[in-house]
């Protein structure tokens, strides 16, 4: 059996362990809620992590997938992490929680140097994905900063136009 098959076989288990680790890192209350309510609208948080987990795992395993697909699946989860309290490392560190789980469940299967090589490649893919998540995280933070500015501007949008037209003349407008 090659590594990809091990990846496939253990998918359920590893994802369960990983999401478990993510829950464990979240406040106590999140755990109960994330696990019990499966309606995506009743429990948006759990829905986001599940969506991200599946796509992330497939990409790490080396399944046929595109960066765009993985990105769109991870987007909401990363965006959620981007507005939660905590440092950026805490927000994105959750991706690295997958490594110990993989090492425990998959690495023992790697008996030949080729397997180990494949395994290391898979871990590298996780690193790349974490970088991808970092981009998304930053984009999300940018959006927030931009929203702040835009909101202040929008609040007075009409007043600014009026000031230009009636009071400031071409000086401001120019």
């Amino acid at each position: 059996m090659n590594l990809l098959e091990y990846f496939r076989n253990d998918k359920e288990d590893i994802l369960r362990l990983w999401t478990g680790a993510v829950y464990a890192a979240s406040p106590f209350e999140t755990k109960g809620l994330l696990r019990t309510v499966t309606d995506p609208f009743g429990n948006p948080g759990a829905d986001m992590i599940r969506e991200a987990a599946g796509a992330l795992y497939d990409a790490v395993a080396g399944e046929e997938t595109t960066a765009a697909d993985v990105k769109s699946a991870m987007e909401r989860f990363v965006k959620l992490r981007a507005v939660q309290q905590g440092t950026p490392s805490q927000a994105l560190g959750v991706f690295y929680l997958l490594k110990p789980v993989m090492r425990e469940r998959l690495l023992p299967h790697c008996s030949t140097p080729d397997d180990v090589n494949d395994y290391l490649t898979a871990e590298s893919r996780l690193d790349s994905l974490a970088l991808l998540a970092f981009d998304m995280y930053m984009a999300a933070r940018e959006t927030l900063a931009e929203s702040r500015v835009k909101e202040i501007r929008n609040q007075h949008a009409q007043i600014t136009r009026w000031a230009r037209a009636f009071r400031g003349g071409s000086f401001i407008a120019g």
Binding site: A21, A25, P27, F28, Q85, T87, S89, L97, P100
Partner: peptide, 13 residues
């Protein structure tokens, strides 16, 4: 480690 980093986010008391 990532675990330690994340754990610095206070768990539910």
């Amino acid at each position: 480690t990532p675990q330690e980093l994340i754990a610095t986010r206070p768990p539910f008391p």
